Amino acid sequence: MTWDVAQAEWAGGGPGYALVRLSGHARGAGPFAPPTLLVPDGARWARLAPEPGTPPVRGWFTVDFALPLHLAIDDAAEWWLEPGPRLATDDVPTDPRVEAIAARVADLADEIAALRARLEEPTPVGVGADAPVPVPRRHRFRPRRPGLPALLFAAGALAVGDAAATVLWQEPVSAFWTARQQDALEGDLQRLDTAYASPAAAQSIAPKTASASPTTPEQRMRTLARTLDASAKAGRPIGELRIPHLDNHYVIVAGTGAGSLRKGPGHYDGTALPGEPGTVGIAGHRTTYGAPFRHLDALDRGDPITVTMPYGTFTYKVEGTRIVKPSDVSTLKAAGRQRLALTACHPLYSAKQRIVVLARLVSATPRGAAAAGGAAQARPA
Rank of each mutant, 00 (worst) to 15 (best):
A43P: 07
I305Q: 02
Y311D: 04
G275M: 05
L228T: 07
G312V: 09
A43T: 11
G59P: 06
R236T: 15
L358G: 05
S211M: 13
L151A: 02
A66E: 11
R262Y: 03
A165H: 01
V135H: 07
E171C: 10
P96R: 10
G368Q: 06
H249P: 00
A254P: 01
L342R: 02
E218R: 14
D64W: 07
A375M: 07
I282S: 00
G264M: 02
V173W: 04
G59I: 05
A103Q: 15
T166Y: 06
A195D: 12
A106N: 15
W3P: 01
Y196G: 04
T62H: 10
V133E: 05
G239L: 07
T227H: 15
R97T: 13
W10C: 08
R301Y: 01
K263A: 07
D297Q: 06
A381Y: 04
L246F: 03
E99V: 14
A33F: 09
P124Y: 12
A369L: 11
C345T: 14
P265S: 00
G270H: 08
L152P: 00
A88N: 14
R118A: 15
F176V: 13
V98R: 14
T308K: 01
T215S: 15
L168Q: 07
T365I: 13
V324H: 00
S213W: 13
V98Y: 10
A100P: 13
T331K: 12
F176M: 09
R379I: 05
R142I: 00
D300S: 07
S174A: 10
E120Q: 14
S350T: 08
A376F: 10
P136K: 03
Y268A: 00
G12F: 07
D4Y: 07
A46D: 03
R47Y: 04
L361S: 13
A370T: 11
G290V: 00
K352W: 15
P274S: 05
A298V: 01
R97W: 15
T287M: 06
D269E: 05
P50E: 06
T215Y: 04
V324Y: 02
L38K: 11
G266I: 01
E99M: 13
V356L: 06
P52A: 08
F314T: 03
R379P: 04
L19T: 07
E78I: 00
Q182H: 08
